[in-house]
Nucleic acid binder design. Sequence first.
RNA 1: GGCGGGUUGCCCGAGCGGCCAAUGGGAGCGGACUGUAAAUCCGCCGGCUUACGCCUUCCAAGGUUCGAAUCCUUGACCCGCCA
Length: 428
Amino acid sequence: MDAVTGRELLDDFKWRGLLAQSTDEDALIASLDAGPVSVYIGFDPTAPSLHIGHLVVLLALRRFQLAGHRPIALVGGATGLVGDPSGRNSERILNDEEVISGWVTGIRSQLEAFLVFDDSANSAVMANNLDWTRSLTALELLRDIGKHFSVNQMLNKDSVATRLNGGGISYTEFSYQVLQAMDFLELFRREGCTLQMGGSDQWGNITAGLDLIRRVEQGSAHALTMNLLMKSDGTKFGKSAGGAVWLDPKMTSPYAFYQYWFNCEDADVIAYLKFFSFANHATIDDLAVQVLEHPAKRAAQRFLAREMTTLVHGAEECERVELAAAALFGLGDLSQVAETTLAGALLQVPRATIARSMELPGLIELLAATGVVESKSAARRTIREGGAYLNNVKVTDEAFVPTRGDLLHDRFLVLRRGKRDIAAIEVS
RNA sequence: GGCGGGUUGCCCGAGCGGCCAAUGGGAGCGGACUGUAAAUCCGCCGGCUUACGCCUUCCAAGGUUCGAAUCCUUGACCCGCCA
């Protein structure tokens, strides 16, 4: 582990396509080789959970820890209240303080799962920038910090410049870079942190911190940014039909999470593996060959889905989800699937329950009840288009009503919309 | 502060007072072809007890009219020019 040199670490980042920009590379490598570097990345609470878009930089923190460095995960309890203008062309809507502090708690525990906290020299550290901004007065901010910032430079930052040419920017968001620069300075002082990483849109905010450290402490620190992942067709990564793919199992089920990765296109899967996987170069190169030679086997997709699901949800959950997929997609005839297997599989997909005492409703009702379609109109449409299945058998009659005889093991109905959207009805 | 322009469905964007649930593009969804892939072709794309029927939509609230996304008034927000 300690055998990983700064050069090797950066070369790996380059090979993976992660490295976007860094401050002087030789100096950065020299500092990495001089001993464990304390490196930080900030995560603002903009939602109740992190999503897979956050994973790239979060895993970078983990890569640094594996290489012997000391990761600091910072939750933006303060910056989240203000709103980062980077990468946005319109002002954010401010959320209530209580809401944000709830998000901070959730995100904090998510971050902890990816890093190692122990007694070692490179144990991870959690920080919250609210700790050093809460008691800061406006006058202190203006006199002690603000004096070191040139508005001319602030206006030149990409995040601000684009907004000045477009939808405008509030003083609140304009000040964001000051807060983030303060964070870097604060961590430099408290934790000896000399490296900040982030997505490529964070370059301006990070360098603002470098300047501040130089001016106030005459210190030197480094910046490293990572590429934002794009799909091969140029669309944004990480969105599925239901919106973002979340790490919180209550927001994106482990089953859906696995399926997201598993369904990734051939043209993207190797880039994803490089971005997200901890597999070594030889393994990934080998998977690339397999995609070319036996694309239908989806070896790379399966590898990726398995690694990501295990990482985020654990090995046991991953296995359950894989068994579910095998049961639901494997055999044409669902009645051949054993009851316990089927019951376990259906636990993973969206489902609705109806009382045994009730008459079975029509297929339209059932589809809508599980949420695989948004409305009864949509359910009708799906049936009309030939995209509705009951127990893997296509149903084309809009008025179709299942009977008791359709129940698998006397309790389940497996509904499907299109090729891969599966849901379940349980009679109990 | 003054003058002018704007606010349309997930996004961009058209829209003559009736023929507007609203052109077009993108995204999304279904089908065919495949491999739970891509590309391509076809179809769908507000809701409802599927109804050439009804209901809720075109920033908000009022108004004019037999009838308004389209006209008027007020308000909110955005953009531009001038001070």
